Computed example of a mutant assay.
Amino acid sequence: MSSTWSLPDPMLAAPTSDPDLAPGHAAEPKWDGYRALVGRRSGGGVLIRSRAGSDLTGAFPEIVAAAAGLPDDTALDGELVVWENDQLAFERLQQRQHRRTGAAAQAAAQWPAHFVAFDLLRLGADRTGQPYRERRRALEELFTGQQLPPPWTLCPSTTDPQQAAEWLQWSSVGMEGLVFKRLDQTYVPGWRGWRKYRSRHSTEAVIGAVTGTLAAPTTALLGRFDAAGRLQYTGRTTVLNAAARQALAVELQPSRPGHPWTGWTFSAGWGSRQELHVRLVEPVIVAEVAVDVSLDASGRWRHPVRLMRVRPDLAPSEIPLFGQER
Rank of each mutant, 00 (worst) to 15 (best):
Arg300Leu: 05
Thr153Glu: 14
Asp55Tyr: 08
Leu88Met: 15
Phe143His: 13
Gln97Trp: 01
Arg245Phe: 13
His25Leu: 11
Thr203Val: 10
Leu7Cys: 06
Ala75Glu: 11
Ala117Tyr: 15
Ser6Lys: 13
Met11Arg: 06
Gln169Thr: 14
Pro71Gln: 13
Gly174Ala: 12
Ala68Val: 00
Thr237Asn: 11
Gly212Met: 14
Ala105Val: 12
Ala125Tyr: 02
Trp152Pro: 03
Cys155Asp: 03
Leu93Glu: 06
Leu12Ile: 04
Ala59Phe: 10
Thr213Tyr: 01
Arg273Leu: 14
Pro131Gln: 02
Ser50Phe: 09
His25Lys: 11
Gln110Cys: 04
Ala290Phe: 06
Trp167Arg: 11
Val291Gln: 03
Ala290Tyr: 12
Arg300Tyr: 02
Arg302Asp: 01
Gly39His: 12
Gln163Leu: 10
Pro189Arg: 05
Arg49Val: 11
Arg326Thr: 14
Leu168Phe: 12
Ala36His: 07
Arg41Asp: 01
Ala36Phe: 10
Glu141Thr: 07
Thr101Gly: 04
Asp296Thr: 07
Ser2Arg: 10
Ile319Val: 13
Phe322Ser: 11
Pro304Glu: 12
Arg195Lys: 06
Ser317Pro: 00
Pro257Trp: 10
Trp191Lys: 15
Leu148Gly: 00
Ala67Arg: 05
Ala242Cys: 00
Val250Asn: 00
Glu134Trp: 05
Trp83Cys: 06
Gly299Gln: 14
Gly102Ser: 14
Phe143Cys: 11
Leu47Ile: 11
Leu252Cys: 08
Gly263Trp: 00
Ala117His: 15
Arg311Ser: 08
Leu321Cys: 02
Asp226Gln: 03
Ala138Arg: 07
Ala215Ile: 00
Ser255Gly: 05
Thr101Glu: 12
Pro8Met: 00
Pro217Met: 07
Ala315Tyr: 08
Glu84Gly: 12
Ala36Cys: 14
Gly235Met: 01
Ile285Val: 15
Ala315Phe: 11
Ala117Glu: 12
Phe322Tyr: 14
Gly145Arg: 10
Ala220Gln: 05
Asn241Gln: 06
Pro8Gln: 00
Ile63Lys: 00
Leu37Gln: 15
Ala27Tyr: 03
Gln94Ser: 15
Ala209Val: 06
Leu56Thr: 02
Ala65Ile: 02
Trp5Gly: 09
Ser172Cys: 13
Val179Glu: 11
Trp270Pro: 01
Arg236Asp: 04
Gly33Ala: 07
Gly212Cys: 13
Asp160Gln: 03
Thr74Lys: 03
Leu47Phe: 15
Phe180Tyr: 15
Ser6Tyr: 06
Leu37Lys: 07
Ala105Ile: 08
Gly58Leu: 12
Phe225Asn: 14
Ile319Tyr: 04
Pro257Gly: 02
Gly193His: 02
Gly177Trp: 04
Gln95Glu: 03
Leu37Phe: 08
Leu121Trp: 01
Arg195Cys: 04
Leu123Glu: 09
Glu318Asp: 05
Leu231Trp: 04
